[in-house]
Design a protein around this nucleic acid. Structure first.
Length: 845
RNA sequence: GCCCCCGUAGCCCAACGCAGAGGCAGACCCCUUAAAAGGGUCCCAGUGUGGGUUCGAGUCCCACCGGGGGCACCA
């Protein structure tokens, strides 16, 4: 801070209290006083110069659904503690804000009001921005971005094209969610309990050609790179990501298809592979199942079974995902009139089609081993198919109980595997399969490619032109952005295709390659694409030549601390990690993980339940702020408990928070010593308390135990209060030292109160840039400490001893203690464990 | 069904080998004509249950009970 940076502030006292002790703390006046001052100082702009170490603190950017709510208040209060601490420690901090402003709610609002989605979107953004300002989050407002701005989505389109060039963006036909009433494709999020969220109709599947990102190509790296995140990301997020990627190892096994079906010879000989994690149970395969909806089912189906398969498929298509996935459900299926030969024993086993086999996973076909897989057992029981035990686990016989055994054991009825255990069996059979050309070891993933196209208007148009001559043609970079046409109101109503398709002038375009009449792709991108790279854009948000300046990205990335809700544990974080790796492979960035550390804050609930309109238990953030003020709401959020825990608003007390803030403020107003007074002569007890608090708060903040940090500050305020009332009084320089330390440390949580305290203490704004209190370790040292003396682990005496006492000396004093002699009650002293200077444990013989 | 996390005063939450830091609620006192605000004092648990390891366990191990979360026809 230089003299020039100081600006005049409205008079409300400086240093010496003008009014008497009856002056009360007016939180709202203090808010109104400092807001314009901070606007003028602009203390949180990222300097981005080379002198100071940098820290990039990022909050997950909000969707502009309306005004900020309690959930935002918690998340951003916590993120702000992290950011303001970094500022206080002198880092060059990047703490930006923006809006994830594409998405369906804007479209629905536009249809309802016969307006443009942008109207609703940008009005909400302004509302939220104003609320953020009042909520005093330490943003660098100069870097604000909105994903719905053409200046932003231009680069989202650029990103799409880079993936397209690498073969990582492609189109394929697949079954997607379809609402038969609204005649539209639905995103997964729009399907609630198997029904359309708009009209309630049962959602079915429809085959459509859609755009995908080939995230599956990165499955292994997404797993491997998590090692670097261990300890810095919550374990449960890492677990969820691992589950989602779902790696499993096993083998592909080739079965030979019998040309002779249930009606004669009508197929060429061929093989069909299955994936299995238990190739060692191959001798126990008693039938074979293909996914009913796969092309393979049709191909393998004997002519005599075609009608049966057809009607079964129709039956399956009518089921919602919810019903189909239910594990309670009876197994269904149909025999295809076909047999395949098991390569290990040349046994012909029947081929069935069923919906418990998924066409998208593995090869869409399985070998069924009822004795050692419960799903196969259930199917076998339903259709009276045989089971054969090939692993003796020592448990009850699956053929009798109907319970498959999956544990380790000894192989039986398994030829070359007999006598081996599970691991050996897997290794041996895999080797055999390879040697005999019947299969190979394999790894598969549950992760699917990312479906990115949406038949929606309010998103980034996919920058592809479809030309009758050239096929798919990417829009040249220099023609970006492909801007959205001006559609509004009922133009946006769903009608089976993207609303963009109806904008015929917009759709019609000259092919960038051959110049002939061609058509734009009419889909828009999933909004998760927008948010998969925004953290890079903040590094150079106004660059109109490139999505991000590599030098700026090198300076700031990766994000040092990312803060957001656990609801994004999988999708957003996985997509961002994927895009980061792609950009790394493209040579655009030199790191492979975007977020070095992640903090998930909990939810704000009320009376044990999440807040909702239907429950009528919502708490309005604006109202809370009206009653208690911004600082008290922020303090309540931070003090309620560990940041990752949920906060039940019924369990916490914003009134109590306000009371504490008032106490802190009053201490500052009463200080009478001059700024800069040397605290050396002050009350040693209070000085020690101050410096211990500095130590503890520092440690607590750095380990994200913000609630503990606040508790320590409360103690120090109490100590300062006591020093004023019953110690040397308000003129004691130690009181000033304590008050200043409180002001600075409290500024992470309660910036208005802290600024007002700082001002009353005669210091220039902003407190946020005044540095962190300096710890004087010499003041921490206690001359005497309390040593606990235990007899058989029970505390029997406490001794005041020098902190530097030797083990010998402490042992001697402990054994001489009358209380200990009494506690020993005549017993002989056995062991004496001494941990100087704190604990002695005397163990009777 | 599988995996993970968590059970500390009436409630929310702390705790290096000393179970209570802090807050809420409660009781009382001071200030006040009174109330509110403010200042202060006090009350309250042996850590879900049962074992084990250890000189010593809220902290480590096992089982069970209770709560929360994740995954779940992924072969």
């Amino acid at each position: 801070m230089t003299q020039d940076d100081r600006i005049e502030v409205p008079d409300s006292g400086s240093g010496v209290p003008v009014s008497g002790p009856t002056e009360s703390y007016d939180v709202h006046a203090v808010q109104e006083k400092w807001l314009p001052v901070w606007d003028a100082i602009d203390p949180f702009r990222a300097r981005d110069d080379s002198s100071a170490p940098r820290r990039y603190i990022l909050d997950m950017f909000p969707y502009p659904s309306g005004d900020l709510h309690m959930g935002h208040a918690e998340a951003f209060a916590i993120g702000d503690v992290v950011a303001r601490y970094a500022f206080a420690r002198g880092y060059d901090v990047l703490h930006p804000i923006g809006w994830d402003s594409f998405g369906l709610p804007a479209e629905n609002a536009a249809i309802k009001r016969d307006a443009h989605p942008a109207d609703w979107t940008y009005a909400n953004i302004e509302t939220q921005a104003a609320s953020f300002r009042r909520y005093a989050i330490s943003f660098d407002w100069s870097r604000r971005l909105h994903t719905s701005d053409p200046e932003y989505y231009r680069w989202t389109q650029w990103l799409f094209l880079r993936l397209y060039e690498r073969g990582l963006a492609y189109r394929k036909a697949s079954a997607v969610n379809w609402c038969p009433v609204d005649q539209t494709v639905l995103a997964n999020e729009q399907v609630v309990a198997g029904a359309c969220e708009r009209c309630g109709a049962t959602v079915t599947k429809k085959n459509l050609t859609q755009w995908y990102f080939r995230i599956t190509e990165y499955a292994q790296r997404l797993l491997d790179d998590m090692v670097a995140l261990e300890g810095h990301w919550p374990d449960r997020v890492l677990t969820m990501q691992r589950n989602w990627v779902g790696r499993s190892t096993g083998a592909y096994v080739d079965f030979v298809v019998e040309p002779t079906g249930a009606g004669g010879v009508e197929l060429d000989s061929r093989t069909v592979s299955v994936f299995t994690t238990r190739p060692d149970t191959l001798f126990g395969a008693t039938f074979f199942v293909v996914a009913a909806d796969s092309p393979l089912a049709a191909e393998l189906c004997a002519p005599a079974s075609r009608d049966a398969l057809q009607s079964y498929r129709e039956q399956v298509a009518r089921l919602s995902d919810i019903d189909r996935m239910s594990t309670e459900r009876e197994k269904t299926g149909v025999f295809l009139g076909r047999w395949v030969r098991n390569p290990v024993n040349d046994e012909a086993i029947p081929v069935w089609a069923a919906d418990y086999v998924l066409s998208e996973y593995g090869t869409g076909a399985i070998m069924a081993v009822p004795a050692h897989d419960q799903r196969d057992m259930d199917f076998a029981r339903t259709f009276s198919l045989p089971a054969r035990v090939v692993v003796d686990t020592g448990g009850p016989d699956p053929e009798q109980t109907g319970n498959a055994t999956t544990g380790d054991g000894v192989h039986v009825n398994s030829g070359l595997l007999d006598g081996t255990d599970k691991a050996t069996g897997i290794a041996r059979i895999t080797e055999w399969l390879v040697e005999n050309g019947h299969g190979r070891a394999a790894t598969t993933y549950r992760l699917r490619d990312w479906l990115v196209s949406r038949q929606r208007f309010w998103g980034a148009p996919i920058p592809i032109v479809h030309c009758p001559g050239c096929g798919e043609v990417p829009v040249p970079d220099e023609d970006l952005p492909v801007r959205l046409p001006d559609l509004r109101g009922t133009d946006l109503a769903p009608r089976g295709v993207s609303p963009l398709a109806a904008a015929s002038e917009w759709v019609s375009v000259a092919c960038p390659r051959c110049g002939r009449n061609a058509q734009r792709d009419t889909d828009t991108m999933d909004t998760f694409v927008d948010s998969s790279w925004y953290y890079l854009r903040y590094c150079s948000p106004h660059d109109d030549q490139q999505p991000f300046d590599p030098a700026a990205v090198r300076r700031w990335m990766p994000v040092a601390q990312y803060v957001g809700g656990v609801e994004h544990a999988i999708l957003h974080l996985l997509y961002s990690r994927f895009i980061t790796k792609v950009l790394h492979d493209l040579g655009r960035i030199d790191f492979t993980e975007p977020f070095a550390a992640l903090l998930n804050q909990g939810q704000v609930i009320n009376e044990g339940r999440s807040m909702s309109k239907s429950l009528g238990n919502g708490v309005d953030l604006g109202r809370q702020i009206e009653i208690y003020g911004v600082d008290a709401v922020r303090l309540t959020m931070v003090f309620a408990g560990p940041p990752e825990d949920d906060i039940d608003w019924a369990d916490v007390s914003p009134a109590g928070s306000l009371k504490f803030l008032t106490r802190a403020w009053r201490v500052a107003t009463e200080v009478t010593s001059e700024p800069g007074t040397d605290p050396a002569g002050g009350d040693p007890g209070l000085r020690t308390a101050t410096h211990r608090t500095i130590r503890d708060v520092t440690l607590a903040v750095e380990s994200a135990r913000f609630n503990v940090a606040v508790a320590r500050l409360m103690e120090l305020v109490t100590a300062a209060r006591r020093a004023i009332d019953t110690g040397n009084g308000a003129h004691d320089p130690a009181v000033r030292e304590a008050a200043e330390a409180v002001a600075v440390m409290l500024s992470l949580v309660a910036p208005y109160t802290a600024e007002e305290m700082w001002s009353r203490l005669g210091r220039p704004a902003p407190v946020a840039r005044s540095g962190w209190p300096t710890l004087d370790p010499s003041l921490l040292a206690e001359e005497t400490v309390t040593a606990v003396v235990q007899v058989a682990g029970r505390v029997r005496d406490r001794l005041q001893v020098p902190a530097t006492i030797s083990e010998q000396e402490l042992r001697g004093r402990a054994l001489a203690s009358p209380a200990i002699i009494r506690a020993l009650d005549g017993r002989e002293v056995g062991r004496v464990v001494v941990r100087a200077p704190r604990v002695v444990n005397v163990v009777p013989a």
